[in-house]
Design a protein around this nucleic acid. Sequence first.
DNA 1: GCCAACGTTGGC
DNA 2: GCCAACGTTGGC
Length: 155
Amino acid sequence: MNYWLMKSEPSSFSVDDLARAPHRTTVWDGVRNFQVRNMLRDQINKGDLAFFYHSGGSTPGIAGTMKVSRSGYVDASAFDPQDHHFDPRSTLPKPLWYCVDVTLVKRFKCVVTLAELRQHAALKDMLILRRGNRLSISPVSAIHWQYILKLAAQT
DNA sequence: GCCAACGTTGGC
DNA sequence: GCCAACGTTGGC
């Protein structure tokens, strides 16, 4: 079982949106980066756990936890010319892009902010804290996962 | 295959 | 709104 961190801009889709979604579940689609595509297709499995990270807003940070409820499958949004993420290079016989389904496990009472994460030496190697990190999904170690869960429980 | 230009991400 | 980082594109 693996742990991940998945970014979303709360103005487009937030942890509260996920809490309101049917079965607290959504398709995590629209990823158009090859490194992240490879993770979605090959590495992120049903049963894995992930942090829901709010990026771009006024208070970036981890807002809750999710479970992967469906492993990688073809991202149909690439086929829809009306969709913002339409990509004509992706075809049914040769799909380019992949997605997973995620289900909300727990919405944190308070967001564990990026600023707070930076204050903990135990987390200094987290990919999210690295300069220039722009991947919308990154792996999280079991140690960091447990540590952050404790932080979230304290606040 | 190199590399400049360009676009996007995301913190601040 | 600014800017650093970095992925992608396309000319050569």
